[in-house]
Simulated scan of single mutants.
Amino acid sequence: MDMTSRMTAHFNDSAAVLQESGRALAEPLAQGVELLFTTLANNGKILACGNGGSAADAQHFVAELVGRFERERLPLPGIALNTDTSILTAVGNDYGYEHVFERQVLALGQPGDVLVAISTSGNSANVALSIEAAHERDMRVIALSGKGGGAFNDLLGPDDIHLCVPHDRTMRIQEVHILLLHALCDGIDALLLGDTA
């Protein structure tokens, strides 16, 4: 395969995964929008976490909430739990890296808040523990995963929302994750601004 064909194949594969994900995830995604809107309307906040590319996605999502997405509106309360290097290194050093998000959820999470937990495999130990901590705090969870969902399948409860991308390749899963997060932002804005047509 020449390089141009290889690059074209990426676009074709990505488009196919996006289409399949749209068919599989549109309904739970709409439920996620409703959950986040209700949380924000009731003075709750959104916590988000992930590792590596998923950490970048968590930060990106929170930036869209606190700043703005596409239209002017009031800032919305969101915290990316993977941004404070002092907390991450202190907790990682004193308790172990698997506890870096769990401790923050226990410190900052309140009943009625939502955790957005991101892991392409669904098996990240520190993200898994954050889900358990969210449940301890009577928080609901929106989990973004792929590869069949991994450990998330056993951790999530009936009131949580699982957006599991139907694919096994990490980069394709990440491409869908950013679309899912943008769609959540768009849905929140539509409800906040009364644009649900």
Rank of each mutant, 00 (worst) to 15 (best):
V62Y: 12
G149Q: 05
L65V: 05
L108Y: 15
L192I: 07
A128L: 13
N12V: 12
A55R: 03
G92P: 01
G96I: 04
Q31I: 04
A143Y: 03
H10G: 06
V66Y: 04
P166T: 13
T170A: 14
F152Y: 08
V17W: 07
V100E: 02
L36F: 00
E70S: 11
S54W: 08
L193N: 14
E72L: 07
S130A: 15
P158A: 11
D2M: 01
G122M: 11
R103Q: 14
G109A: 03
R169H: 11
G194M: 11
S124W: 01
A151R: 13
E64I: 03
S145Y: 01
T120S: 15
L163G: 06
E64L: 13
L129N: 10
S145T: 02
H135D: 09
S54D: 07
L155D: 04
F101T: 10
M1T: 12
S21Y: 02
S130R: 00
D186Q: 13
L81F: 01
L192K: 09
N153A: 07
D159A: 09
A9G: 05
P111W: 03
D113R: 11
E20D: 10
S121E: 00
V33C: 04
G78N: 07
E102S: 07
T120H: 11
L163F: 02
R6G: 12
L40K: 10
G157A: 10
A125Y: 06
G149E: 07
T170N: 12
G194F: 01
D94V: 05
L163W: 05
S14R: 07
I142W: 05
L179Y: 09
M1H: 14
V17M: 02
V114T: 13
V114I: 13
H10Y: 15
V114C: 14
H182N: 14
D195A: 08
S14T: 09
F101D: 07
L180A: 11
A16S: 09
M1S: 14
D13V: 09
E72C: 05
G157H: 13
G157S: 11
G112K: 07
V114W: 10
I46L: 06
Q19F: 02
A16L: 07
T89Y: 08
S124D: 08
S130G: 12
M7K: 13
T83W: 06
D84C: 05
S119D: 05
G32A: 07
L184I: 06
